[in-house]
Design a protein around this nucleic acid. Structure first.
Length: 890
RNA sequence: GGGCAGUUAGCUCAGUUGGUGGAGCAUCGCCUUCACACGGCGGGGGCCACAGGUUCAAGUCCUGUACUGCCCACCA
């Protein structure tokens, strides 16, 4: 350590303003971190202290950082910074996601404003346009991640659509294809007409919608009447190819095998029987539309029905819809219903609420549609993903386990082809000559079957989540055998929101296990959603969005980070309010001023570290409390109890360090005790800063660099997390501090309640319970007097108290404040009554408990003993107070 | 229709293995005390949703009820 000169300390102090000003320090701090490349692990170094790695959940390039990101980044950063301080090799990989549909939509909307569509531009120009857009706005995300103070390694930044990741995607696709796990087929898929693409099942959001149940008459072919059908989607009748009833439904037995006439189009429909039909629903007759409903699709195959697709890719009725051709599905419904009514086919319209699928990207209604798409056969992959939890990967909080299992158990094949242009192009080619399909990593020059040289690549791109699923290993360099992959896979933990458990987490598990043979992360921490103060989801339309960058600008990044960490109780949503952030800013200011106080008193600080075996009671107490804090930090952070860790820091700094310790040493600093007090003060401050640093990196760095005598070359970010100190011997002193605190508080309470002005230096008498307490009060009389605002203090077991005194009992010690006409007796009597009532209530409850033989018999001896001691203590205090009370009523 | 959370001070929330309930903000009183008024000191405020059960002892474990929120689900 360097020695400290006075001028250093003075200069540092004068550099610190009275309040912490984050806006003046954060930019400089960020620049420094980046220049120093502090967060780039040195792979040349051995990793004996351990390794720790996280891949960032890559934010969409379209997006602005929202509170969810802020929380996500904060939690990861806390973990990473702490591990770095523990001496481990830490790699946190940053990056962004190309977000196929979302990004394409954003850019398309921009083009719309210019009056052009992507089709006007053509595929290549359009993709180029998005790339430009990405280059322009991608930096936005980067800047925002930096703003949060995230200690990521920018030298290893990745993008889900960069060249390396494209190679990974192609390799994965080809391998799965050859393993038979990727196939192409024609099935009912979820179709978003606005995005003009198919979607996976989990990309569809089901929302209740008020619609209607239409009862439609289908005339029987033989003219013997009609059959009544219930449907919520009358427009799809244009694609009906059968009617179905339950084979044991007595009402319709005679109809099976007959034919009905489709109203409006006049097509003949066979009436079939299938146990799938629910007799209870509607009329018990189901209209079958095999090309537009997943269940009807099954029926269609089972019964060999015709598949008539009536909708085109824009969501309009096609040629098959006769006169309805060209109408949107919505418009078609209106028209069909009107025509049915006019033709006398519509019997009834009942209001009916049911769930309707919506696109998770644009909220349009999803149409089930028969379409040829690529799929991943996920069953075997899902089984592996299921089996790996919790053995290989532990999920926190464990309440998500069931949800995870349940989803994997009921998973259906994953539709991965998207009819958009922005994304990883599917590496499949069709020979123009012979129609042979080739799936290869590199563009084939010739058809392997007919040697034709004219091949057309599949126009579709892959679901964004397909490339996201590879992120933990692709971001580390796979398929190359990189040192990063070698050292950091599997990653230590994945930190993400529970909302993408299925989209992302489960799929990473599948792909990681399949291609790397190991789960992609050892742990998975699913954090909550950030909501507004009323518990509502933040959204632009609601107007309740709290913008993280606005908050950091107003209160400082550390304030926001600390707020989020304090709220991050496992398994519960976060209700964020600006007031809370403001409260945390006060905490930052408190820390700042504690440091200022230390620096103001740094003059003459010897550079010796905190001496072992310091003697002062309060020193031993604060060191003891500090050790308890360290233990808490380890325990809490090892279990991701961020809120507990944050709260522990808050309490230690504010209640222990500032409220008591700094006040206690003020007298020391003016006298002979100064060197010891300084040494302990700075030792405690340094370690506290290191403990705080993972949560609030900016302010702690700023203070750290202002401290005298620090290791000049070492940044706080690389300063070892403080090792525990053996303070077992201090435990007794820590306990004795309570006597002191109790006495001080007792005098203060008397003064406050009797309205003795602070300016009035009172005198106090203490009648100690034991000789030890007596010695203690004598030993610390200076401090006691200054904290309680006394000008005179007498401690004596036999002290005679004047009648006109206010009295209290603390830990058995009698605290007496002679009043000498300062206050009237009635006020003091009332105060004593209140205190007595409080004691009495507690004592009565305990006494009742102890009177119960079952308790005394069955409860652990130490509990009984503790309660007995407490009851005795309360009894004694009560007796004393009662005596005082007598005096006043006499 | 299944599954999962939640119901604790006026508000927003903590409460590890069961041992007489805490914080922030708000509120009331006093204080411009030489780190901090983004402060200090002191106070008030809670049948821990409801009903049972287990236990010597339940905010904490079990069962049920009532609300609230979320997720999943092909009944037209």
């Amino acid at each position: 350590m360097n020695s400290v000169s006075v001028s250093d300390a003075n200069r540092n102090f004068s550099a610190l303003p009275k309040s912490y000003e984050p806006e003046k320090t954060e930019a400089r701090r960020r620049a420094f971190w980046e220049e120093q490349r502090l967060f780039t692990p040195d792979l040349g170094k051995s990793a004996e202290a351990g390794t720790f790695s996280i891949v960032i959940p890559p934010p969409n390039i379209t997006g602005n950082l929202h509170m969810g990101h802020a929380l996500n980044l904060t939690l990861q950063d806390i973990l990473c910074r702490r591990r770095r301080q523990l001496g481990e090799q830490v790699l946190w990989v940053p990056g962004a996601d190309h977000a196929g549909i979302a990004t394409q939509n954003v850019v398309e909307r921009r083009l719309e404003k210019e009056g052009i569509s992507r089709h006007d531009l053509g595929r290549e120009a359009f993709v180029e346009r998005i790339r430009q857009w990405k280059d322009e706005y991608g930096d936005n995300i980067r800047r925002q991640i930096k703003a949060m103070g995230a200690s990521v390694d920018w030298s290893r930044e990745r993008f889900t659509l960069d060249e390396g990741l494209s190679r990974a995607v192609r390799k994965v696709f080809v391998r799965l294809y050859h393993e038979g796990l990727i196939y192409k087929g024609t099935y009912i898929v979820n179709w978003c007409s606005r995005c003009r693409t198919a979607l996976a099942d989990d990309e569809v959001e089901h929302r209740p919608l008020k619609g209607a149940l239409y009862l439609v008459r289908y005339p029987l072919e033989d003219g013997s009447g009609h059959i009544l059908v219930a449907t919520t989607r009358p427009e799809t009748m244009l694609g009906d190819t059968a009617l179905a009833v339950h084979p044991e439904d007595g009402r319709h037995l005679g109809l099976i095998g007959k034919k009905a006439r489709l109203p409006l189009l006049d097509r003949l429909l066979p009436i079939i029987a299938d146990p799938y039909v629910d007799r209870e629903f509607g009329t018990g007759v189901l209209k079958v539309t095999p090309a537009h409903d997943p269940d009807d699709w099954h029926l269609g195959h089972k019964h060999g029905l015709e598949f008539i697709r009536i909708m085109d890719e824009d969501g309009d009725i096609n040629d098959k819809g006769g006169v309805y051709r060209g109408l949107s599905m919505e418009k078609a419904r209106e028209t069909v219903v009107a025509d049915l009514r006019e033709g006398g086919f519509l019997k009834e319209v009942r209001p009916y609420e049911h769930n309707v699928g919506h696109c998770y990207r644009c909220s349009s209604v999803i149409e089930p549609l028969l379409s040829e798409q690529w799929f991943v056969a996920v069953k075997s992959l899902a089984e592996k993903a299921r089996a790996a939890v919790p053995e290989q990967t532990r999920i926190f909080p464990s309440s998500w386990l069931k949800t995870y299992y349940n989803w994997l158990d009921n998973i259906r094949d994953w539709c991965i082809s998207r009819q958009i242009w922005w994304g990883h192009r599917i590496p499949a080619w069709t020979c123009d000559a012979c129609g042979e399909q080739t799936v290869r990593e590199e563009t084939p020059q010739h058809c392997p079957k007919c040697s034709g040289s004219s091949l057309t690549q599949d126009p579709d791109v892959l679901d964004t989540w397909f490339s996201s699923a590879l992120w933990p290993f692709s971001a580390l360099g796979w398929p190359d055998k990189t040192p990063e992959l070698e050292r950091f896979y599997p990653t230590s933990i994945l930190v993400t929101g529970f909302d993408i458990l299925f989209f992302w987490v489960a799929r990473m598990m599948m792909m990681g296990l399949h291609f790397m043979g190991e789960a992609p992360f050892r742990r998975c921490y699913l954090h909550a959603l950030v909501r507004d103060a009323q518990g509502k989801k933040m959204s632009k339309s609601r107007g309740n969005v709290i913008d993280p960058l606005e908050m950091t600008a107003r209160y400082g990044t550390d304030s926001l980070r600390f707020t989020l960490a304090s709220f991050a109780a496992m398994g519960r949503d976060i209700r964020l309010s600006e007031e809370r952030i403001e409260g945390c800013r006060h905490f930052m200011n408190k820390i700042w001023n504690a440091a200022r106080f230390a620096l103001m008193n740094a003059e003459g600080l010897s550079e010796s570290p905190c001496p072992d075996g310091v003697r002062g009671l309060h020193h031993r107490w604060i060191l003891y409390r500090l050790e308890e804090l360290k233990k808490l930090q380890h325990a809490a952070l090892d279990e991701y109890r961020f809120n507990d860790a944050a709260q522990g820091l808050y309490r230690f700094v504010w209640n222990d360090l500032c409220d008591w310790y700094l006040e206690l040493i003020k007298t020391d600093l003016r006298g002979e005790e100064r060197p010891v007090a300084q040494a302990v003060l700075f030792a405690v401050l340094r370690e506290t800063l290191v403990l705080l640093h993972p949560f609030i990196p900016f302010i702690t760095s700023e203070i750290w660099d202002a401290l005298p005598g620090r290791d000049a070359v070492r940044d706080i970010a690389l300063t070892p997390f403080p090792a525990p100190r053996d303070v077992a011997a201090y435990a007794g002193d820590a306990g004795r501090m309570e006597l002191l605190q109790g006495a001080v508080t007792a005098v203060r309470t008397i003064r406050a309640e009797l309205n003795i002005p602070p300016a009035h230096k009172a005198a106090a008498l203490i009648r100690p319970l034991t000789p030890e307490a007596h010695a203690l009060f004598e030993d610390r009389r200076q401090v006691l007097m200054s904290l309680a605002g006394l000008d005179k203090l007498e401690t004596d077991p036999a002290v005679e108290a004047p009648k006109a005194s206010a009295r209290s009992v603390s830990c058995g010690n009698e605290i007496i404040v002679p009043l000498a006409g300062l206050v009237d007796f009635a006020v003091e009597a009332a105060r004593l009554d209140k205190e007595l009532a409080k004691l009495d209530k507690e004592r009565a409850a305990l006494a009742a408990k102890l009177a119960n033989p079952a308790f005394v018999e069955k409860a652990p001896a130490e509990i009984v003993e503790r309660d007995r001691a407490r009851v005795t203590e309360l009894g004694e205090a009560e007796v004393k107070l009662r005596v005082f009370r007598e005096i006043f009523s006499a």
